[in-house]
Structures are given as C-alpha cells and as structure tokens.
Design a protein around this nucleic acid. Structure first.
Lengths: 326, 326
DNA sequence: ATAGACATTGTAAACGTTTACGCAAAGTGA
DNA sequence: TCACTTTGCGTAAACGTTTACAATGTCTAT
C-alpha cells in the first residue's frame, strides 16, 4: 500500500497521466467536466496527495517564501509572522519558517543554504544581522531577499523596518518634552539598528542643546536591562529610552529591587510596544512599532510589489514616564 | 548564467555525474581523493548548491521534521523550538516550521497538508488541538507524528507534554499548604489540556476535603485573565491557579486596577514559568514546565527513539503567593 | 602467470510531476 | 460540402538527483 501517484489514478480511471495532471492542477479549459469528476473522485478515494518535490523539480521552484528568524530575546515575532503569512497567502505563496537559533552564526548560515536549496520564491530575514559571507551568498543566488525589521543603511538591499533614527528621535524628544535632560539610551546593539537609534537619540539631544549623556549597549534582552540598571543609577539619569520591551522590563524590575521608584525617580520609555508593556507595573510608555504591517510590507517587497521602506511608529503613553522630580 | 547542476560540474571536471554525485553526497570509499578534490573545487567555483527537490524526489522523503505551531497567546514556543532544533540536528534532521495561525482551522489543516506533501520524516504538532479530520489525515499518512505539549489522553497517539493532571494537583496542593481554601482554576480551555488540569485541581481539593470552588474557562490569553478577574472577585477567592503566565499577568494587572493587593488579598500561582513570571510585580510563583526538554523528547519520540511521555515540572516560588490574610 | 579482491568510475534507470506538441473528433461558418 | 477552429486527450521529454549494476584497472597471494 504505497503512496498513490497520478499514475495510479490514471490507471484506475483509464486516462493518461497528462490528463490527471491537468485536472489536478486545475488547468481549466483543457479537460471535460466528466473526466474531471471521475478523476477527482478516484483521487479522493485513493487519498492522493501531490508530491511537492516532484512539482518543485519540474517547475523549478516552489511557491513558498522562506522566513528566517532568530530567537530574539524580544517577542515581536508572532506579529511579524502573522503579517507575512496573511499577505503571502493573498499572493498564493506558502510560508516556511527556518529558525536561526540565538544569533547563532552557523545555524543562520545553514538556514540560508536550506532556503536557497529549496529554490523558494523569496527569502525574508527577520532581525538577522548578516555577515559578508551570507550577503554574497544571497546576492549571487538570483532569488529575491528582504530584511525585515532591519535596515542595512543602503537602498541597494531590500528591507522593511521602522525608521530607527526617527523612532529614537521621537522618543527622545518626547522625554525631553516631559522635562527630562539626563536621558540615556540603554540596551541597543552595536550593529545597524542600534547605531541608527543612537543617531536619532543624539540628534534629538543636540537639537535641544543637551549633551548626549549615556549610551549603554546591550543585546535587547531582559538580562541586559537588569545588568545595566547599575550604570543608569551611577549616571544619575532621570529617564531612559530602552532598546526593547524586554530591556525596559529588566530595568524596571532591577530598579524596584534597588528601591528606585518608577516613574517617580526614573522614567522608562520602551521601544517596541508589545504586550509586555501592559504586563509590567507600572505599564510601560512606549514607541510602538507596527510589526504586523512590517511583515506585510516585507512580502510585498520581496515579491516585487510596491511596498513601504519604513513603516510609521507611534508613541503610546502608559504609566512609566512622568516629568522629573527636581 | 543559470543555476549550475552536477551535470555542469561533471562536464568541467571530465567525470560522470555519478561520480560527482558520490563525492557531493560524501559516499566515502567510492571515490578517490584526487577526483574529490577536483570536483569540490569546481563545485565551489561554480557556486553549486544541491537542488533539494531533486534529492527528495529520488530519496522519497526529506530529512526534515515539520513543526506545526500555532500563535499561542502564551510564549513558551521559543524554548520548545530550541529543544526541537537541537535534538533534530543531532539526529541529522532539519526543521521547518509551519505556522497555523491563531487556532485557525483552515490554516492548521493547510499546514498538515503541506507537511504531508513534502514527505517529511516526522510531524510535530505544538499546542495544536486536532479535529477528527486532521487526525485521520495524519494517521493514514504513514508518516510519524507527535503532539507536543498536548496529551490526547491515549497512549495510541504519540505525545510529549507535562503531566497536566499532576501539574495541577501539585500546584493546588501547594496553595492548600499555604493555607488557602477558596482556590479557583482560571483560564483553562475546554479541551484536553484544560480538562486534565481541571481533574488534577479537583482531586487535590477533594483529597483535602475542600469543595472544588471555581473553574473559570478561558483561552490562556492575557485578555482572558483581565476579563475573569471580576468573577474571581465575586467568588471571594483567596488564591487562583492561572492557566498560563499570560492569564496570570492579566489577572494581576486587573487586580491592581481594582485595588486588590497581590499577594496580600489575592495569591496568584501561574502555570508555565516563562520569563513573564519575572517581569511582573510581584513576580509570579509558578509551576514551571520544562519546555526545552519537551521539545527534545518530542523529536526523540517522532524519530522512534526512546522518549519520555511526561516531562517533570517543578514549582518555583516567587512573590505572588502568601498565606491568606484571614 | 593467474585468480580473486578491491578501488574507482561510468551507464542508465528511476523518482512523480508538468507541459510542448500532436492528433482525432466535434463544432462552426461559409 | 469544405476549411477551419476548438475541445479533449495522449505521447514523451524534461526537471536534477541517487544508485544498482557493470566495467575497468590495480593489487595481492599464490
């Protein structure tokens, strides 16, 4: 009782495999209703299922978008995935997700290789910082790829993200408008996203004649937030812009352990705006990214449709930012 | 400049495609070092990459495990994925993740079809409640499948999870040991996992001669927790066992809005033990599941290796449970 | 020198589809 | 009636690998 093929269906229904294939592929207009009905019936009886490998082989490529994603300490991924999946299915594309571990280089590379080997119709890289090798691999592959939630700083490489410079500028300006002057940027990485945010932060500070106080690098994780609180305290900051909701949460709980009151003694503004912001006490004021939209736009882009480069952010006020005490 | 195949390599190196294939597949002992070196060099120069479709076709199946996962409101997924990925790669299997949306039936079904069409070597279903149709589809497919973090109540179907009955029993007993008598179970679903937990809860209550007070069904989400607080209050409970960290977080923030002090007025014990438990104030005491291990064991199981059915849980005390006030 | 074992390679079939091409039958317009 | 188009279907090639089998050459032990 082996897996049935179109050959079996052909045999049982007394037609050629070509006809079976045409019916099964819905090439309407090239078969009669009668044979179609017969074939479909037999196919169902046999429990027939198309062999995608065979289809991909002859069609030279799968109608599938590969999404490579790493285990970011932060958890915006489901919204991105939702957006991608939705838009992809509107365009008749499936989605397979390849997991690149936790900034694990080998896994990341492996995932790219896998995607290329499957001749997918597009590759999406979410929150992935590529190295040179990955990049040339992708470029030479002839298959379109697009970075998601990461902007490499050049229009030559497809990408959809928030405008990190602007995002940080807005957030910093918001803090300044509240009356803060000793503001730090905490938990950013040292790569593209981080440096773009750093620039926005610095621009906002100098535009308001404030000395850019402190940038404390990290890796967007909860633990980074916890660890960096000491430095925040030492610098005598009255407000911080946290690189992610997780960093914000880390700073918050660490602050509470140090008897630093939030927001009375320290205001925290978070970047991302996931549900984490509602869970903490106090709830975190954030500059919220539209991850769902980022997802959608990225499949547009990788499929050659018109798409946004930057998806707007918005500030949502919750309870973790107030004017400084002094 | 089309994508190079073994044929191109064969032509350039003056050997047959069979030899190229053998070298590229590392069939050691069936080729000489010299030709291997030559072939590998040319392959690299050409930027050759195997066509997985062709390989899968002739090999009748891919060395890949498909993981079907839904967008659970709770976020234990990355740990499960980590475990799966790790163990899979130890066994020489790749992993592709198929996203089943948010308990979206059509998508769920679609994902199963896709996995079957790709003749993967195993299918893992994480936190998926199957319907009859899905189940027969899987059973008839001849390819092994295993539920992850969900036990269907019969040994006939492969599954790896925590022992939900025992988990709920332990948690309830813990609350009782703290002196609570008016204990509710909040946010569970009405399917397998939920009813197993309900049983454990009830057993613990009756074993301690307490009337099972209240079971408030939900969907494991933050919103469910928020919504159900009113009922918790109305029932005059002094402690709740929340179906997930997200539910617990929802109950907590809603309680704070109602000026109910946690844990002084209401103790909250959470099921899952993800990082969410550390983020809230107070931190959530939880019965913590070992999701990483669940992931690992599930690939063992689906690959026919010896594996645990139930992965032990442990109670970790944080700050959200204290003895009742009165 | 001879037989057998072994190492290395080539030939060709197979995997399950899609699709260009061709052909017969049926329909259409004059 | 004829010429032509359309409809429905079959034949066979193609996609890029793997692998059974056969062929060749080399080595070893007699």
């Amino acid at each position: 009782m082996t897996k049935p093929t179109i050959k079996d269906i052909a045999a049982q229904s007394g037609v050629s495999i070509a006809t079976v294939s045409r019916v099964l592929a819905n090439k309407s207009g090239s078969y009669s209703e009668k044979t179609a009905a017969k074939i479909l019936k037999i196919a169902k009886e046999l429990g027939y299922r198309k062999n995608s490998a065979a289809v991909d082989l002859v069609k030279k490529g799968a109608d599938v978008i590969a999404l490579i994603i790493n285990a970011t300490p932060t958890n915006f991924s489901t919204q991105i995935i939702d957006g991608i999946q939705q838009r992809a299915s509107e365009l008749g594309q499936g989605v397979i997700i390849l997991y690149a571990g936790n900034r694990d280089h080998a896994l990341q590379h492996q995932a790219i290789i896998t995607a290329l080997g499957r001749s997918v119709s597009g590759i999406l890289l979410a929150a992935i910082e590529p190295d040179e090798e990955d990049l040339t691999l992708l470029k030479e592959s002839q298959i379109p790829f697009c970075f998601v939630s990461l902007y490499l700083g050049t229009a030559a490489i497809l990408a959809v993200s928030s405008d990190n410079r602007d995002l940080a500028y807005q957030a910093t300006q918001y803090l300044i408008d509240q009356g803060h002057t000793r503001i730090g940027l905490v938990g950013i990485d040292e790569y593209h996203t981080g440096s773009q945010r750093r620039i926005g932060y610095q621009e906002a500070m100098t535009a308001n004649h404030l000395a850019p106080a402190t940038v404390l690098p990290g890796d967007y994780s909860y633990e980074a937030g916890v660890r960096l609180l000491q430095a925040v305290k030492d610098q005598g900051l009255t407000a911080v812009l946290a690189a992610s909701d997780m960093v914000a949460a880390g700073i918050l709980t660490a602050a509470q352990q140090h008897k630093i009151r939030v927001p009375a003694d320290l205001s925290i503004m978070s970047i991302d705006g996931t549900i984490i912001c509602q869970i903490t006490t106090p709830a975190l004021t954030s500059v919220t990214q539209d991850f769902y939209q980022i997802g959608r736009q990225s499949v547009n882009k990788v499929m050659g449709q018109p798409a946004l480069d930057f998806v707007p952010v918005k500030i949502v006020e919750r309870a973790s930012v107030v004017p400084p005490a002094d």
